[in-house]
């Protein structure tokens, strides 16, 4: 490749004399910061919040920690169909199915299969919400809880008992 015949053109905009002088343009910047200063100092407004005391109100569609919804008899809606486990791209859901004890089952055939274990590894989960989309019974759902910090890795493994606690945020 020869470089001899290539003509390069400088396309950058030349500075105007006002910009070169610098003194005429910096007051503009000063005015911006002064406006924000007045906004913060006199009007007491800020863009940040004092987090633990104030919390942002996220959208209704926010995808936080999962939960499993219960019906009026406190039975989980999940019928252990494995659709969420199949669709999960991160493979973080592990379900073990069993037959529900007929004596504890007032709704009969609609809920004769139940999850014996329903484990979610929150550290693997990518919060894509596809489990929620796939569920035919609206059993697995995602709450608006985003405070998922834990002390150990084991604490981030959530079981059926934890997942089926009542969640008010999103039903």
């Amino acid at each position: 490749m020869s470089t001899g015949n290539i003509k390069t053109t400088n396309v950058s905009r030349p500075y105007t004399w006002k910009e070169r002088l610098y003194l005429l343009t910096i007051p503009k910047g000063f005015l911006v910061t002064l406006r924000y200063f007045i906004r913060g100092f006199f009007l007491r407004k800020s863009n940040t919040i004092s987090y633990p005391e104030e919390r942002r109100n996220y959208s209704e569609r926010f995808r936080g920690m999962h939960f499993i919804s219960l019906d009026e008899n406190k039975l989980e809606n999940c019928t252990a169909c494995y659709l969420c486990q199949t669709v999960c791209p991160a493979k973080c859901i592990t379900i073990t199915a069993e037959e529900r004890d007929p004596k504890e089952n007032p709704v009969g055939v609609a809920k004769e299969k139940r999850p014996k274990a329903f484990d979610i590894d929150a550290l693997r989960c990518c919060f894509c919400g596809m489990c929620e989309e796939a569920c035919p019974k609206d059993a697995i759902k995602m709450s608006r809880n985003y405070e998922l910090a834990v002390h150990t890795r084991e604490m981030a493994m959530y079981d059926l008992k934890h997942l089926s606690r009542e969640v008010k945020n999103r039903g």
């Binding site: 910061t33 924000y36 906004r39 913060g40 100092f41 800020s46 940040t48 004092s50």
Partner: peptide, 8 residues
């Protein structure tokens, strides 16, 4: 500086 940057 906080006020100028919209912080507390």
């Amino acid at each position: 500086s906080a006020w100028m940057q919209g912080r507390l």
